[in-house]
Nucleic acid binder design. Structure first.
Lengths: 259, 259
DNA sequence: CAGTGGTCTAGACCACGAG
DNA sequence: TCGTGGTCTAGACCACTGA
């Protein structure tokens, strides 16, 4: 028989199973953090094949109701508290007080922040970055790639690109920890007085590597933010390319109505 | 044999197939609008089972490279030109020139913009909105809900909420078309001089109703933006709640480095 | 080690779309 | 009608996790 009694109901079996499990989660029968029954268990309970159960699980994953860990199982997600990111985090006053932008921000958020530096060194500038820096594509620049965590959970990954001629005399920016106030403070100490920042914000689904780096479920959305740091004479002295787990952040902006 | 030579390579077969097709798309060998080879064709070409091909196709779908239509096939998506949304769109100069924000923006983007007004009338303010307006939850406010299109395709849906005492003497804001410069121009004409805007940006997956309203695929990301319009004396006179198809927009912001 | 999810096969039947 | 994608089965082996 195998496929003789298949694909006939109004809505697909795997969706019914997903809806059933979703109802259990919303009702609280499956509490946040609880483990979802294993695939084998669900196959037996619903009398379906493995593929069908897996599609149901995938459905719950894309709706962010559960997360899955290879070899461990699936777990009901607990809505994490979001982190507000305001343009205020780049206020010069914060830099003068010796705080890096991330820490300045973390002060007003719950959770314990931490940072891991993944890479610091020369790189060929990717086309879009080179364009923003006003350099030919492939020019050597300094890249600083780091990953940010809150309570040990990765939340965002950021790569800063700086023109080589700007950084070559600023030894601190080659260090893992560029010192109090971060690289913006170092830039200003070396005569690059920052006038303004511009940010471009896009949202999209995470790529495979991003899901790994940020431990996201496939199909999870990310915020892709690219910021230019611009000096008083109009030069872009840093481009920061950031990918954030979308469910972890709210971005706040404020701008005047005047001309 | 069946499964004797399975799941051993470094990266999964379905990902290799997806990557191969993605490369063909990026190289232009598969042009936008072209039909992707059928599943049967791909099964033969790559020598894999149907399930494997389907997973590869699903991968390309979540990366927005293709779209699939039951019974017709899969097609390479033509990258819709994204629309840049800059804070500049609220410059008073634009309002004075008689342009509404949306049209002012559309001038610098490709595509023909259009708007449909879905609802204008009194509503009980939802909690989050009431909070921003500084009113008790459930207070009667004026809601203006409209849907925006580009080239006939829905791209965003926005609802403005205005305190009743503000609008009760401004007949134009009850009309479908509030006139040149939009409601912000009308507010300023009636003594509500706008000082600044704040925007909160979040990204998440579309809800079921949103996928319908914006004709999105399930699992597609949206940008949720909430803007407050604030007068010189600090009063919030409008809250605009907007949901945008994420793949249609880039949000641009600019802010000073000064204190 | 046992148990979990991840990938894969080689089929089947159903539902949709176009000629 | 025929070709398309959508769902489903009943298995298999692989890879990761934790006791």
């Amino acid at each position: 028989m195998a496929s003789s009694e298949v694909a006939s109901s109004a809505t697909a079996k795997y969706l019914q199973i997903a809806a059933d499990l979703a109802a259990q989660i919303k009702s609280g029968a499956l509490a946040p953090g609880a483990t979802v029954p294993s695939e084998a268990e669900l196959m037996q309970r619903y009398g379906v094949a493995s593929g069908t159960v897996r599609k149901a699980i995938a459905e719950l994953r894309t709706t962010q109701l559960i997360e899955t860990h290879h070899g461990r199982g699936s777990f009901v997600r607990s809505r994490p508290p979001v982190q507000r990111k305001s343009a205020d985090r780049f206020r010069r006053a914060h830099r003068k007080a010796g705080k890096a932008a991330y820490l300045a921000e973390a002060e007003t958020s719950g959770g314990i922040p931490s940072v891991t530096v993944l890479f610091v060194g020369p790189t060929a500038a990717p086309p879009e970055i080179a364009d923003r820096l006003g350099l030919p594509a492939g020019t050597q620049v300094l890249a600083r790639k780091r990953r940010y965590f809150r309570d040990g959970v990765p939340t965002e990954e950021a790569t800063s690109y700086l023109p080589w001629d700007v950084v070559k005399d600023i030894p601190e920016v080659f260090a893992e920890n560029p010192g109090g106030g971060g690289i913006y403070a170092r830039l200003e100490e070396h005569g690059y007085s920052l006038a303004e920042f511009t940010e471009s914000v896009q949202a999209r689904l995470a790529t495979k590597p991003e899901t790994k780096a940020l431990t996201l479920s496939p199909g999870a959305p990310v915020i892709h933010l690219v910021r230019d740091a611009i000096t008083a004479d109009g030069r872009v002295v840093e481009v920061c390319d950031t990918v954030m787990a979308a469910d972890q952040f709210v971005l706040d902006y404020r701008f005047p109505a005047h001309d």
